[in-house]
Simulated scan of single mutants.
Amino acid sequence: MLDPFFAPFPLFKELAQPLCDTLHLYSLPLHIHEILSAFAIYHIIFEYIAAPLSTALLPTRYTGLSWESKLRWNMHCVSLVQSISISVLALWVMCVDQERKTMNLEERLWGYTGAAGMVQALSTGYFLFDLSVMIRHLDVFGVGMLTHASSCLLTYTLGFRPVFNYYGCVFMLYELSTPFLNIHWFFDKLGMTGSKAQLYNGLALISVFFSCRLVWGAYSSFNIYKDVWDALHITNDTKFDSRPEMMIYGQDRSLPWWLVVLYLGGHVTLQVLNVFWLGRMIAAIRRRFSSKVKVNGKAR
């Protein structure tokens, strides 16, 4: 399926081409404009939209927040927009991209479709924005969030070799739980800690997080591990009925050890973190609705 986004500006493509070829990121010039567009949109929301809109809609609550809480509020606004939009786009591409649906092993590893590349590019643009904020406000968000932003940006950028283009949409579905997490945080700041609305949202958060990050995540991780294992055991006489239009950018059909370690190690680490985060969320929600906690409208 072709990229439904507008075509890249020739100037951007020409400027990016030499560096991308040097770095073996052969499909990146086709999506450089989407990365820059996503970065610009999220930057504008963070710097120029979240604060005045929140002040207009919630003048008492927003203006009463500390500088650090306002910073986090604005970041949660961006995260809410990004998580909803990228989840919808990823699901849409998975449903309508027929070429992607019928990829064989070789195509899943080194193949490319424009629509899947679009999802990958818009995600990369967000992680680039996220990294810039984490660097600027390291004292607020901490080293952990900086490391998360860096690893996500690196992983999705390397996908433009292209490699694992098929799986870009698959793992973006982790974001299905993020809107509920953002809403849970907003409830605290709005003085709705312990409310029924927060309870229902908390139950939805745990259910969706468990389903999309642990169940779907484990299933998808197993699939990518299996594909990598099969690819590493491909013999020279193995023949694939691959479609040329999908392999046109697959100039570097290899799986160097550092790439395998980076991807598979990253997925193992993320799955462990998902289990840890689920436990933390369950504990936090239980504290909010414990009979010992007095609901006084203050954020915990």
Rank of each mutant, 00 (worst) to 15 (best):
A7M: 11
L11I: 06
K13M: 11
Q17I: 06
Q17Y: 10
L23M: 15
S27R: 01
S27M: 03
P29C: 07
A38N: 01
I41E: 00
H43G: 04
I44Q: 11
I45N: 00
A50Y: 00
P52K: 15
T55L: 02
A56H: 06
L58T: 03
R61C: 11
T63Q: 13
L65T: 02
N74H: 08
S79Q: 08
S83E: 04
I84F: 05
I84N: 09
V88N: 06
L89I: 11
V93H: 04
M94W: 10
Q98P: 04
Q98C: 10
Q98R: 12
Q98A: 12
E99M: 03
M103T: 08
N104G: 09
L105T: 14
E106R: 06
L109T: 11
G111K: 02
Y112R: 05
A115I: 05
A121S: 09
T124N: 11
F127Y: 10
F127R: 00
L128N: 04
V133L: 07
I135C: 08
L138N: 09
V143Q: 10
V143I: 14
V143N: 15
L154Y: 01
L154W: 01
T157W: 01
G168T: 02
F171Y: 12
L173T: 04
P179D: 03
P179F: 09
F186P: 03
F187Y: 14
A197H: 11
N201E: 06
F209Q: 00
F209W: 04
F210C: 15
W216I: 04
Y219T: 10
S221L: 09
Y225N: 11
V228E: 09
W229F: 12
D230R: 07
N236S: 15
P244E: 13
M246T: 09
Y249G: 01
R253N: 08
R253S: 10
W258G: 07
W258K: 06
L264Q: 13
H267V: 07
H267C: 05
H267A: 11
V268K: 07
V268G: 08
T269M: 15
Q271W: 08
F276R: 07
G279S: 08
R286Q: 13
R286M: 06
R288F: 07
S291A: 04
K292E: 10
V293C: 12
G297D: 13
G297K: 15
